[in-house]
Nucleic acid binder design. Structure first.
Length: 350
DNA sequence: ACTCCACAGGAAGGATTGGGCA
DNA sequence: TGCCCAATCCTTCCTGTGGAGT
């Protein structure tokens, strides 16, 4: 049924990015104008911010031979971002030691830059809290393209001098309309399935509507709905496959998210999953009970403050949700079907 | 209305880690 | 091998917020 599974990967960049032509042209013009190559791309999750940046920089590379690199900025500090950018440069070293000073990294970066270089900073929501934008902007021939969710809020958190040039070319992506997203899904079905007839247009529109214009969810739902149809030995997706397809797609994304998290996060998730729903106090009590799980692990149990610092990641990854601002806040798992990776010691009777 | 207190999250600084170098 | 140094991780301390009790 599936001819080319890569077509449904998050990283897949389609040869023809539909309904984003204006934005691509705008970014290209910007990248080609000397002295002001910087741009900000913002918009909700899954509307194609990264794919837009990739498409625009690919075209720039083809047309001018410019260097374009992409870095995942999430969770990185200023030195970490500079190091990652340096490692990506074609003239740069493959591996930069974590202990290399920022001054030295900056010097190596300047040396390695050869002509126009666009640095895309994906997942850059936390960049205003670092000096990375200023550091990169200060380097000649370098254009900086941060990608964030809420562009206006992001700009307000940034230093005025750094915000101004980005505000000048702020590309805000909205969700796709049902028709636009159905067009995109139609192309993917043609590229990805042996038999594109499996996904008729009305069902593609149902998918686009169900996922509220979020392309990433739409593409995964298309794949999952096709799997469901095939499991039932049918040759086409029906409307009834879409809702379970959407659920299956989200479920798969969450399992992948959980698997990518480090040990401390895994334990916190296991505790919330075991309880179903619990308060912050109960979460800490249970954590203190099960610290024996760290025996033989390279890491030791962490304090309450550090546990609090880990929880937002579980929320970001759509694994855990919470209600309440301060006292009395409760946590619960979003999808009970996402089983914990780490098994906790049995609860002691109290 | 007031006080208490649990809790979230920011700031600062100490401990740890790991590469570079003599 | 042992020291130095920079980055990172984590704890401690703190402030602000809001629910509960009086």
């Amino acid at each position: 049924m599936i001819a080319d599974p890569r077509v449904f990967d998050d990283e897949f960049v389609p040869p023809d990015l539909l309904h984003r032509e204006t934005e691509i042209e705008r970014l290209l013009r910007r990248f080609m104008s000397p002295q002001k190559r910087h741009a900000l791309i913002s918009g909700p999750s899954g509307v194609g911010k990264t794919v837009l940046a990739m498409t625009a920089t690919d075209r720039l590379r083809e047309e001018t031979g410019a260097t374009c690199i992409q870095i995942r900025a999430l969770g990185k500090t200023t030195p970490g971002i500079l190091r990652a950018a340096l490692e990506e440069l074609p003239q740069g070293p493959d591996d930069v030691a974590q202990t290399t000073s920022t001054t030295e990294t900056r010097r190596l970066f300047r040396e390695a830059v050869d002509g126009t270089t666009i640095v895309v900073l994906d997942e850059g929501d936390d960049l205003p809290e670092t000096d990375a934008i200023r550091e990169l902007r200060a380097i000649e021939d370098v254009g900086v393209v941060p990608i964030a969710h809420d562009g206006t809020d992001w700009l307000s958190r940034l230093d005025v001098d750094d915000a101004h040039p980005l505000d000048n070319c702020h590309t805000e992506l909205g969700r796709y309309t049902v028709n636009e997203l159905a067009d995109i899904l139609e192309h993917r079905a043609r590229q990805g399935f042996h038999n594109p007839e499996i996904a008729p247009r009305p069902q593609l529109e149902t998918i686009a509507d169900t996922v509220a214009g979020v392309a990433r969810d739409g593409i995964q739902t298309l794949l999952a709905s096709a799997e469901i149809a095939r499991e039932q030995s049918r040759m086409t997706i029906t409307d009834a496959d879409v809702e379970p397809g959407y659920e299956r797609a989200k479920h798969k994304i969450r399992i992948g998210n959980l698997g990518s998290l480090p040990f401390h996060h895994q334990i916190l998730y296991s505790i919330v999953h075991e309880a179903g729903e619990l308060t912050a106090g109960e979460l800490h009590d249970r954590y203190d009970e099960i610290t024996s799980i760290y025996k033989g692990q390279p890491t030791a149990p962490i304090g309450k403050r550090e546990r609090r610092r880990k929880i937002p990641k579980l929320v970001d990854y759509d694994l855990v949700d919470h209600d309440g601002a301060t006292r009395g806040r409760t946590y619960w798992v979003v999808d009970e079907g996402v089983d914990p990776v780490v098994e906790l010691p049995t609860a002691v009777s109290r």
